[in-house]
């Protein structure tokens, strides 16, 4: 949070520091749009903010972002060097120190039918990354069988704590826990979100035995890690493309456990997606964890086995 505040232009910095403490501590998103009022999202609520840091529902009372602020903000988040962020601009977001992510929108520049970057950036979505250590505690017992890590798919709608859970699983496996000894973990961090790397150095604690391939496409990255780092467990975020599916198959058959996540609100929905459906049909995954926001981000809705039967703690093979 400190890193984010430090990189914002002075007026925005003042407003954010003037926010009521409980809002500031539970901030999830800061949304900035040119010529529109500043919006903050916190504990599932959204509100505009006045110049003095008061929350307001009135659009006209909100502090408005001018073009000058936008220029300054871009200068700051790009460290005065937009050209060094070409790849990031193609993807539409920038990861900054502290592992926070800034989504951007504006005028897209195309070249040869492909997105070349974004020019005239006018919208920013600053997502505050929160480390929630211990998020994996509830699910860890389900992830092992006979001392082996099971292939797991985490299913969740956006912003339900999917990435946080995945990161905590990676960390717990890397450190070792009461359920297992420590493992070598390989993370393919295509969107720089899991480890939040800046200049290749993870900004979040992903464990001592973890290797991170930052900003690498998942399919290629998984293969690279298997060859170069011989991980016990591969972690990847937001699986969905055909080549991701193939890479998961390869990894599973190379004796590496895969733990990954996918967007979706329940298993039925995910089963309809071409790549994931196929993987599920072939029982590639032995565990499914479904998340929701029912009791706040990170609520575990259910844990299922390969045949999609729900698992309860009592049904664990060794606890009976």
């Amino acid at each position: 949070m400190k890193e984010i505040i430090a990189m914002l232009p002075a007026p925005i910095r003042q407003i954010l520091t003037a926010l009521p403490a409980e809002v500031r501590d539970s901030l999830e998103e800061i949304r900035l749009r040119q010529n529109q009022p500043l919006e903050v999202r916190y504990s599932q609520q959204a509100s505009y903010v006045t110049t003095s840091g008061q929350l307001t529902a009135n659009v006209r009372q909100g502090w408005t972002l001018t073009e000058e602020h936008v220029t300054k903000l871009i200068n700051q988040i790009s460290q005065h060097s937009l050209y060094a962020l070409e790849e990031e601009l193609k993807r539409g977001y920038i990861t900054v120190a502290g592992g926070h992510r800034i989504g951007i929108a504006g005028k897209v520049v195309m070249e040869g039918g492909e997105v070349k970057g974004i020019r005239d950036i006018t919208s920013f979505n600053i997502r505050i990354a929160r480390e929630k250590k211990g998020a994996a505690q509830q699910v860890l017992p389900f992830l092992f069988q006979g001392g082996k890590v099971l292939n797991t798919l985490i299913v969740s709608p956006p912003s339900c704590g999917k990435t946080t859970l995945l990161r905590d699983i990676a960390r717990s496996l890397s450190y070792g826990s009461e359920w297992s000894s420590s493992r070598k973990v390989g993370i393919v961090d295509e969107r720089s979100e899991l480890a939040g790397s800046v200049n290749g150095v993870p900004q979040r604690d992903v464990g001592p035995r973890t290797d991170v391939l930052d900003a690498c496409p998942k399919a290629v990255g998984m293969m690279m890690l298997i060859r170069s780092m011989s991980p016990d467990v591969l972690i990847a975020d937001e699986i969905g493309r055909t080549e991701d599916g193939e890479a998961i198959w390869e990894a599973i058959h190379a004796g590496v456990a895969v733990i990954c996540s996918a967007h979706g609100s329940d298993l039925q929905e995910v089963a309809l997606r071409p790549t994931l459906g196929k993987l599920m049909q072939h029982r590639a995954f032995s565990r499914y964890i479904v998340l929701s926001r029912q009791h706040g981000a990170g609520t575990i809705q259910g844990i299922y086995d390969a045949s999609l039967a729900p698992l309860e703690r009592e049904n664990l093979p060794w606890s009976s």
Partner: peptide
């Protein structure tokens, strides 16, 4: 223009 566009433009 310094720093405010892609490499080619710079």
């Amino acid at each position: 223009v310094l720093g405010s566009s892609d490499r080619h433009d710079q």
